[in-house]
Design a protein around this nucleic acid. Structure first.
Lengths: 253, 253
DNA sequence: TTGTGGATGTCGCCG
DNA sequence: CGGCGACGTCCACAA
């Protein structure tokens, strides 16, 4: 069932996959170039060095890696460890398979910012190309959007008598998650976070409150409420210092 | 040079790679399980569904994808687009290759937080396993650390007469990048950023300045200087509002 | 193109 | 293990 070196295919839909085991650099270059042209996803196992130059720069000496090139311009270089690729190029980059000094090189360029990635293979273990098509969309739950819906469906979860008036209300400091008023008719700014919050979220909420107090040119005060599953000690202290509040709430019931 | 379906090997060092093209689910499970045991990196091209449950939860319908399992417990599910995997499990997770209702399932569990990933294959195009070993360390330049060194080597880049006294000086708000004094002997807090800064960095610097003024129980003021390649308009305005300053400096000369 | 904030962020450091 | 901040963060969305 395995394709021969020239990428010949058998019946059925095996036409979609191309595999080369221990190919010559020239054969590998040919196969990768054709696969990129065909808009396949390409994976290459082998020993390589990697150079990156752009916002930062890096050099990576010889080692075994898995390199993946996607038809959207993404390139990923993975070692045997870590969620993150050791080097990469984002979507929208150009991709080229070259033969330089008898070695396979995968070269990728992007602009804004100008960045360059060069993978040079000392040994090629295997090249695979496959026409990966995925129309399906990921259905993700438990996001900040879910938390917002939960609060809007049941505002009492924030505080008895709380009434949302607007979402994404604009202020000079940016858009407030939920703007509303409490049982006494005081203005309330609610900042939502889907997970445990630190000092950064307090700073954000504080900027919104200040901006709104300025915007409504200071007719009394604006309450700031941080809604999240939990809060760190320092963040809780910062909230208190600025006269703001915390309400514990999970993104999902 | 291509291995046969049972993973037999030929001479040379091709022993390291195993390839199965269009295997049965049972053969694929066997090969993946053996490869995980052997601590190989495994890649699987095929049509699959993915379920994730943990901090959030997600469902992904049938589609062609590339799944990578690493010996450190990482699992990545990549579609034909994007730098980010559509689903994943981080290093340290357990990995298991199962046969359920005649289908190949890759199941992964982690704890703290408890999270589960399940990839179920409707069709398996290709399974590859290879002993990826990479001793080499990535040499990265142009980081915040490089910017710090640049400032310490030449403090005048911040301001003529500036004298660094300490790095990572502790305050109740966290560690300050560089603490020092200016030509007039006033305390100076320097916050370093390797790239263009927004409002968050201003908040951070502001917290350090406030904390130090409290810490030194308010013997006059502490200057706050944000050092970065550039700054957004809003961040510059926030700096001005809080009486703080900006100095333009690149991480590398 | 730039600005702004979210993310199953991940990663490393340190208490 | 939690807190905290950096990251070549990536990413979607708005101006």
């Amino acid at each position: 069932m395995t394709d021969e070196g020239d990428g010949s295919v058998d019946a059925e839909d095996a036409a979609a996959v191309t595999t080369l085991a221990s190919p010559t650099p020239a054969d590998a270059r040919e196969a990768v170039a054709a696969a990129i042209e065909r808009e396949d996803v390409v994976s290459v196992f082998g020993t390589c060095t990697v150079e990156y130059e752009g916002r930062a720069s890096s050099h990576l000496g010889p080692g075994d890696r898995l390199v993946v090139c996607k038809p959207d311009g993404t390139t990923l270089v993975h070692t045997d460890e870590g969620h993150q690729p050791v080097n990469w190029q984002p979507p929208g980059s150009t991709q080229e398979a070259r033969l330089t000094d008898g070695r396979l090189e995968l070269h990728s360029l992007r602009s804004t910012p100008e960045e360059e990635l060069l993978v040079r293979f000392a040994e090629i273990i295997q090249v695979t190309a496959y026409d990966v098509t995925d129309e399906t969309e990921l259905a993700l739950e438990g996001t900040e959007e879910d938390l917002r819906e939960r609060v809007l469906d049941n505002p009492d979860l924030v505080e008895s008598g709380f009434t949302p008036l607007a979402t994404e209300r604009e202020t000079p400091a940016g858009a407030v998650d939920i703007f509303g008023e409490d049982g006494q008719g005081r203005r309330v700014v609610v900042e939502l976070k889907r997970r445990r919050v630190g000092p950064d979220a307090v700073g954000q909420l504080g900027r919104y409150v200040d901006a709104l107090e300025r915007d409504l040119h200071a007719e009394a005060d604006v309450r700031g409420i941080l809604v999240a599953p939990s809060v760190t000690d320092r963040a809780r202290r910062l909230l208190a210092e600025q006269g703001m509040e915390f309400v514990a709430l999970e993104p999902a019931a």
